[in-house]
Design a binder for these strands. Sequence first.
DNA 1: GAATAAATGAAAAAGGCTTGCATATAGATT
DNA 2: AATCTATATGCAAGCCTTTTTCATTTATTC
Lengths: 146, 146
Amino acid sequence: MAHSHQHDLIDLRAKLRGKDHRITKPREEILDLLGKEEHPVTAKTIHEKLSESCDLVTVYRSLKMLESMDLVKRFDFGDNTARFELICPDDNGHHHHLICKECRTVVEIDECFDSNLESRIAKKHGFAEVTHQLEFFGLCSSCQTT
Amino acid sequence: MAHSHQHDLIDLRAKLRGKDHRITKPREEILDLLGKEEHPVTAKTIHEKLSESCDLVTVYRSLKMLESMDLVKRFDFGDNTARFELICPDDNGHHHHLICKECRTVVEIDECFDSNLESRIAKKHGFAEVTHQLEFFGLCSSCQTT
DNA sequence: GAATAAATGAAAAAGGCTTGCATATAGATT
DNA sequence: AATCTATATGCAAGCCTTTTTCATTTATTC
Ligand SMILES: [Mn+2]
Ligand SMILES: [Mn+2]
Ligand SMILES: [Zn+2]
Ligand SMILES: [Zn+2]
């Protein structure tokens, strides 16, 4: 844990260098915190979990910056609240979720549709750099028994 | 146009009857207006386009009601603003969009991935009534030349 | 036409997120 | 280690979408 954190920080320094971006306590701690989360979390949740507290505005600004550096990815579960997840190298941030409409339980999904669909759509409409946002919604086993 | 509107209204009456829901001018006109749109529109846009104006709150309330009756579907293009589209019978409201990250141009997409993916995911995690939200984002041909 | 349950308007507020500006601090320079 | 400078932060204010409250109006039933 301590080591992987150390590693993250080295990576972070490398990524931020030359961009005139600084390593600050809030940014460190936000990354650290995100590294421990299993699912996307809201800015508010992050703010509440910070041990060395900072302003909520700083959390928003940090997240925006980390997102722009491709260290963090933003997800949208359809409740008017952005959620953030650390981008991990194996899926490069590209994965999806299954969310219970009732209790809001989240399951990480590692499957995706065939990429041909996306490239076909891109080509058909002359679009470039096409990506997608895909989330599944349903009723988890507990919530079905109502 | 006039006829299809008439038809919509008959449908509407049928659907609302028995639910203690009433046919009102704002609801009629919102449905009428949505029937003319090619892409999802925001509550604000709808409000601005209403000829017989009503309060924006009424637009929100009407949309929520129409959504709950499965007459209208809500979409999320990732800009913190809900967009609404009339559910048309041929796709039953299930379709997706391709949105230009730059100019926000919207293309209606009628393709989707194989439904096996969804049922596999549902089964694997014990979820029921699983649906999905899928939107594509990219750069349209005009916006690529930057 | 009267009764009644639902819908509306108006004002206020909630909630997420952003902006402006003065102050503090990271990282570079000496 | 002290200094410098651009970047980051805190705080207050504001923006924007959406919701809530409550008195009034209106659609539908009888
Ligand atoms: Mn995830
Ligand atoms: Mn559409
Ligand atoms: Zn559930
Ligand atoms: Zn474009």
